[in-house]
Write a protein that binds this DNA or RNA. Structure first.
Lengths: 106, 106
DNA sequence: AATACATTATCAAATAATATATATTATTTG
DNA sequence: CAAATAATATATATTATTTGATAATGTATT
């Protein structure tokens, strides 16, 4: 599936760095709320995830520095959206694997 | 995409635990070698990844305890294969996103 | 200036990573 | 059968990183 060992390592490092950013429940919840590609304000995210505000901002900072999300300021509010198509692809797979079956079907 | 906040958190925790296991270059390289669903012996994996044996065994141990891979003994050798379909799905997405474009095309 | 919203700084506790040493299990050989 | 070897696993020690909580600070609007 991957012939060149040096390239394998390079790619594995890149991928695992992104996975590291994803592998935190709070950060993953945040990204789930942005997985539709639309943007959300920080206060919306605060409501949706029920995270304590400084933690929220802290985790958004991690995602921002990794380039996974991008900010846009509008007055006093900050809006974030997913800024990395690779992350978006992973999020969709995660949704299929971890959420699709556990959906609340009335 | 995900209405119930409690369920969101539950799923996010499950997913991030698996991602944590994936988000290490050595472990990811190992899993890449098993991503075709076939099994490989530890010594094969040692050759393929050029990892120092105790590290290799240590990382295999992490993956095994997380249930991502399953062992089979055959004489003195141990064979491992991916034992989790969710992990397999994630690995395929990762391959598409991080390896597909960088393929060595002669 | 006051208010609401958002970010940064600090720091102890918990976890994870890396390297080295040692142990286990099974086969082979004398 | 006992000793040697091979393949893999575990233990340990050290260092580095991450987490989680709280306090302090910054920024824009009213």
């Amino acid at each position: 599936m991957q012939p060149d060992p040096a390239l394998l390592r390079t790619n594995a490092c890149a991928a695992s760095q992104m996975l590291k950013a994803l592998s935190h429940p709070d950060r993953l919840m945040l990204l789930c709320q942005l997985a539709d590609g639309k943007e959300r304000s920080v206060s919306e995210l605060e409501t949706l995830t029920a995270l304590y505000q400084p933690s929220l901002s802290q985790q958004l900072g991690v995602l921002r520095r990794e380039g996974l999300i991008a900010p846009r300021r509008e007055g006093k509010q900050m809006f974030y959206r997913v800024a990395d198509t690779r992350a978006l692809a992973i999020l969709h797979t995660l949704y299929q694997q971890f959420c699709a079956e556990t959906e609340t079907t009335p």
